[in-house]
Design a protein around this nucleic acid. Structure first.
Lengths: 337, 337
DNA sequence: CTGTTAGCGCATTCAG
DNA sequence: CTGAATGCGCTAACAG
């Protein structure tokens, strides 16, 4: 099946016996076109298996129906889930999504955004509130809509949909304090270039301080089971081991749990473990994980709605703080005396 | 910062004191250009923060540097991981990736592919070997490179990178047979529109038959923990419960494990449980999961390499069957008599 | 309601 | 090595 010369709009016009403009009208903004000719055009397009040329279309109309997302990685469910719903919502509205990953590196993020701009995206989804000046400047200058996710902290100009990471850190600490713990450690995320991890840590520390407590230790660990495992080991072998540990993610928490199981450390008897994200895995470990729910899917959906909204309406949608929810399961318990 | 009128190639030319053609040459195929003027052009482009217009570029050159992927969902690590490495490899080579999801529906898949064609993608990644005729015809007709993943079964014309799903089914069965099991059930994936689940089931049944065994039951379950939980329940409450169960994925297997734990059914003492995919979660359950490794990341990388290769070379890369690996951990054991 | 005209921004001929 | 000219396929004005 050799490639027949691509059929274009003008071929459809010829076959339908009308002008290219009319074909364009039928295929697009549905401006008033006689029903009879409309049918003929549609028929002709069908017969010829016509597929419009998006490049030509964008070039002429300066509308690309393209959006971009730059996320740290797709290899973590919390981002994959967000992108999944973002993509679904955008596609429902005829917008295609280009995805790029930054590996948590804001310089790479900038490069990727540049690429997206080059591709002609009309909107961009970013993660977090910390970005290079150039990134934002570029977006502003090209008049591209953008929104930050996983944060509720917009810049002067940017919008945000997500949650307050500091509150998240406080919420976690609060839960453990309420259970009577005083020796609380954190197995936090890597804070370099990750403003969300920073805020959560700060919130955690602040909440302890407000209760005249100090963290027993703050370790940073990648969002992986191994990291949680190794971190828990360090924590539990210390002179003064914690009675409660806040983990950067459910994955890390599951790794921490594994360390405890392997070493006959009772959870939550000896040490309480708190996860973060509310991933599926939290219900599959033994004990099941107490965690903080991150509404990833909803974030994707809302981000899409924001970007799809007419520019005028966007003003009123600039901050969308989603509620944080503590999910209490079996891995945390009151401190035994 | 109001939107200054977008700077275009001709502006760069003016600023650099040369013709647009020269600027184009500098920015692209690096055809011989005097080093001095090249520098001036680069400088001017920098100063003006010039970003080329991709649409115009593609329209003129008929090269879009765009690829597309249509996968069932991003909400399952096995696909997200593949896409993650696919994207990384493509980006390294200046190709952007548009992602669409089909929800395991080949009619939707066709729609998405059409959209991708419209966007001008030069190559497409699909999952599995079962697709609508129209999908393949469209790709062939437009001369778009495409590759199937998670399968080693190419069509007459399409390429494939993945593994033999029937072998996977057989491998799973083999492991349990070797352990002395005869009452073996399957908690398989939904087979509608999923040729891979079909093949794995067929391989499973075939291997049993080759050993004069018949499956004790085959249930279909979505790739979720709940499904595994519910399926395991049905299986274990049957008149003749199995002594070994093959699950569609590690997620389902983890759900099955949970059911057993809740009901004091010993794993692997009373029943062995075999997972599939080798996700992180497999090392975090109790017991840890015996599973079959699916090289998702490698698939993405290889698929990218295939699509990036010059058309001539692709002929020699059409099938790439990756090895399947049984990962034995604690959830399977020899049958006790 | 429909056709005609004129580019969108760029890469590619073809001459110099 | 460089410039001038010519559309890529389509849609937005403007007439009719």
């Amino acid at each position: 099946m050799p490639d027949e010369p691509d059929v274009k709009l003008i071929d459809v016009a010829r076959k339908a016996g009308c002008s290219p403009a009319t074909v364009s009208r039928v295929l697009n903004h549905n401006a008033k076109v006689n029903t009879a000719t409309r049918e003929k055009v549609l028929q002709a397009a069908m017969d010829l298996a016509y597929v419009p040329n998006g490049s030509a279309r964008s070039l002429r109309s300066t509308k690309s129906r393209l959006a971009g997302a730059v996320i740290p990685t797709l290899d973590h469910a919390i981002y994959a889930t967000m992108v999944n719903s973002l993509q679904a919502r955008l596609t429902e509205n005829g917008v295609s999504l280009i995805i790029n990953t930054s590996s948590y590196d804001i310089d790479r993020e900038y490069e990727q955004v540049r690429l997206l701009v080059e591709r002609g995206v009309e909107s961009v989804v970013l993660v977090g509130a910390a970005h290079r000046r150039e990134t934002i400047a570029l977006l502003e200058q090209r008049n591209i809509a953008y929104v930050f996710t996983y944060t509720a902290k917009p810049t002067d100009i940017g919008a945000a949909v997500g949650f307050d990471n500091e509150k998240a850190g406080r919420l976690a600490a609060r839960h453990l304090i309420d259970l009577g713990h005083t020796r609380i450690a954190m197995l936090g995320g890597i804070t370099i270039n990750n403003d969300r991890a920073v805020s959560r840590r700060d919130g955690f520390v602040a909440e302890l301080r407000d209760n005249n407590l100090a963290p027993l230790g703050i370790l940073e660990t990648p969002y992986q089971a191994d990291g949680g495992h190794a971190g828990m080991k360090r924590l539990m072998l210390a002179d003064t081991p914690p009675t409660a540990v806040i983990c950067a993610s459910d994955i890390a928490a599951a790794g921490a749990l594994k360390y405890c199981r392997q070493n006959d450390i009772a959870v939550p008897g000896t040490v309480s473990v708190l996860g973060f994200d509310n991933l599926d895995i939290g219900e599959l470990t033994t004990p099941e994980l107490t965690t903080i729910d991150v509404p990833a899917g909803e974030m994707g959906r809302i981000a899409a709605d924001y970007l799809l909204a007419p520019a005028a309406q966007r003003q009123h949608m600039r901050i969308r703080e989603l509620p944080l929810r503590l999910v209490v399961r079996g891995s945390t318990a009151a401190l035994l005396r």
